[in-house]
Amino acid sequence: MTLRENPPRESVPAHGTHGTTGTTGTTGTTGTHGTTGSTPEEADYHTWTGKARGWLLKRLPADKLLPEDQPSYVASWIYVFGMGAIVSLVFILASGAILGLNGPAWYHVSDLGHFVNSVHLWSVELFFMTTVVHLWGKYWMAAWRGGRTLTWITGMAAFLVSIVTAFTGYLLQTNFDSQWIAFEGKDALNAAGIGAWFNVANLGQIFMFHIILLPLAVGAVVALHVVLVRMHGVVPPLEADESDAQLQSGARHDSDAQHASGEAGR
């Protein structure tokens, strides 16, 4: 086994609309190793960790993950609601952690417990309100354009998983409301055939779902959604299509394909 230096940063191709200013590598070892690959990345990265890093950096370079600027069309209130939902989610997770660590006997009885419980509830209300306005905005600007299908799908998945999480939260109020919701909900879940596994009348099970499994699911889906937004960029309004590099690149592919099929048909 021979020790090799990491490939210089120039070997990771700049990608997307932002472009990179490029860094001047100081190692100067390009071309001295890994000559079997067909592309520069394959040639430079010869281990799975290196290849994984190359794959990630190609799709999500640092200037896309944490951009200096946003396109001018992002300066609109309609683009604020996604971040509003994330901020609400942070409040939900923080207040939820405090509630979970102290337990129902604390938040049902003490003043501070009532307060934190209320913060948790109203953060959820804000989360759903901002999420729904975000969803409306993205639906009416067809936000799945320009190769953003998976971004749209993960957004919808985040919304649906959030609804299940909120449902289990309502079951944890441990009052007549939650008892009513559980005994109404069990019939629907039994009819769907999952009542024996997901038993809404089992407080301990629902508590674990609500504080472990579902927050992890919401967090993971939301994180993936945000990473995809960063990878593909914020979708432009319909009237600003020409400013989106991904849409233009897609349009070029389409016209090339049409041109090629036209040539073939002749």
Partner: peptide, 14 residues
């Protein structure tokens, strides 16, 4: 309130 937010977001200057 959500409909109001949506309409305001479209028309209020940023």
């Amino acid at each position: 309130v959500m409909i109001l937010f949506f309409v305001l977001a479209l028309f209020l200057p940023f």
